[in-house]
């Protein structure tokens, strides 16, 4: 009798449990992110930067490629807000157009490195043993090499072009992501929900896609936002050293490099793009740190 009574489900009681937290993962993250002023500032700057890159032709006051030697080294003023460079080109317009390259450089190699790193990291972590050993040995080798030097070697071998910058930065960058994903996979693999999936007979690749990858997202999100400024800085360094973007492209790194010779008589030529790099890198770092804090409970789980 008692059993029958007990197993009957009282509607009222079930209803009473409706109150538990109803927030989803993203709502929760966004709510804590909203409270972080630095992260919000970073986010706004990034948004402006993206808009600037997209709408460059409409907002740039001058043609960034138009050479006018009569107009060399104009000081910042009403006509040219940030002055002109040694070819008389408008620095502000070149910075606005340069944001396109920076955005591309920030996103594409980061996405490539993330994809490679995720695949190799999960596979290494999940299968372990020899697979793990091989992948991690290669990644150690990549990591133990000075990354800028490695990228430079790649650029020299392949020749300087935008595509080759992507390749160079991807070869250098995947190892870090792979390490993070592998570590995360190792801890997730022994979780009971993964065991439950194995007990049901779910195939390994589906376990990786359905159970492990989605639970790496908090880590990957933070990594991604911090990877982008890394790529932007690497491109700037490569261009500064002359193996990155090639003239007449208006990459910020290249602009700093070209302007460095005139640092004393026309400092704005180098300093303006330098500040642009600084601002965007800081913005991404602020957002990344904010995300890390907002995701903290998920990162620790």
């Amino acid at each position: 009798m008692n059993l029958a009574r007990n197993l009957m489900l009282k509607k009222e009681v079930i209803e009473a449990s409706d109150e538990l937290v109803k927030e989803t993962f993203w709502q929760d993250v966004f709510r804590s992110l909203k409270k972080d002023r630095m992260a919000i500032t970073g986010g706004i700057v990034i948004l402006l930067f993206v808009l600037m890159a997209i709408f460059a032709p409409w907002i740039a006051p001058h043609d960034p490629y138009e050479v006018n030697l009569d107009n060399q080294f104009q000081k910042p003023g009403l006509e040219h807000w940030l002055g002109t460079d040694m070819f008389g080109r408008d620095v502000l317009s070149r910075i606005i157009y340069g944001s396109q390259i920076s955005l591309l450089i920030g996103l594409v190699p980061s996405m490539i490195t993330m994809s490679i790193g995720i695949v190799l990291g999960i596979v290494a972590g999940y299968f372990g043993r020899r697979t793990d050993f091989v992948i991690m040995t290669i990644s150690d080798m990549v990591l133990s090499f000075p990354s800028l030097l490695l990228a430079m070697v790649v650029m020299y071998t392949l020749g300087a072009s935008l595509l080759n910058i992507f390749i160079a930065l991807s070869i250098v960058g995947w190892a870090g992501t792979a390490r993070v994903v592998r570590a995360q996979t190792l801890s997730l693999k022994n979780k009971e929900f993964v065991e439950a999936a194995r007990a049901v007979g779910v195939k390994p690749y589906i376990i990786m896609l359905r159970h492990i990858l989605p639970n790496c997202i908090p880590q990957l999100l933070v990594l991604f936002t911090l990877e982008i400024p890394g790529s932007i800085l690497s491109e700037a360094s490569l261009s500064f050293l002359g193996v990155g973007a090639q003239p007449p492209a208006s990459s910020w790194g290249l602009m700093v490099s070209n302007g460095k010779e005139f640092l004393f008589n026309a400092p704005w030529v180098a300093i303006a793009p330098g500040i642009a790099i600084l601002v965007i890198v800081l913005a991404f770092n602020f957002l990344g740190d904010g995300l890390r804090d907002a995701l903290d409970p998920y990162l620790k789980q």
Binding site: N6, L7, S17, E19
Partner: peptide, 27 residues
Amino acid sequence: KSKGLYSIEGMVPNMLQLPRGCRFHPR
């Protein structure tokens, strides 16, 4: 075992939305 174990139904209320009156009444 044939009688089953006695059990208090339902679960502990959410402390943010406590039931009115006696806190135990829904169970």
